[in-house]
């Protein structure tokens, strides 16, 4: 991953999970797969991080989108931490 993207995630208090290779922030209820971060520009990442999540649901940024059961398992894991 380009070194200029990680500071955006770190500044927004995202944690990197190296087993799942994803960044997440429980407070913001958002997660980004490493592939999504690598495949998008710095601006796209910044916009996605800054966009408010007004719902109670997690927003998971991953392309192609994994089946919902895989996302549910991932969220259960990080919620259990």
């Amino acid at each position: 991953m380009e070194t200029d993207k990680e500071p955006i995630l770190k500044a927004a208090r995202y944690v990197y999970n190296f087993d799942r290779m994803a960044y997440y922030n429980r407070g913001a209820r958002k997660a980004f797969s490493i592939e999504w971060v690598e495949d998008h520009t710095e601006d796209e990442l910044r916009r996605a991080v800054e966009e408010p999540n007004d719902s109670d649901e997690w927003q998971v940024y991953a392309e192609p989108r994994p089946p919902q059961r895989v996302i549910d398992k991932f969220l259960a894991e990080i919620n259990a931490r």
Binding site: D19, R20, A62, P66, V70
Partner: peptide, 12 residues
Amino acid sequence: RRRQLLGAWDEE
């Protein structure tokens, strides 16, 4: 496993 999205198997 690491080649799968979110590093997770689809158990189904």
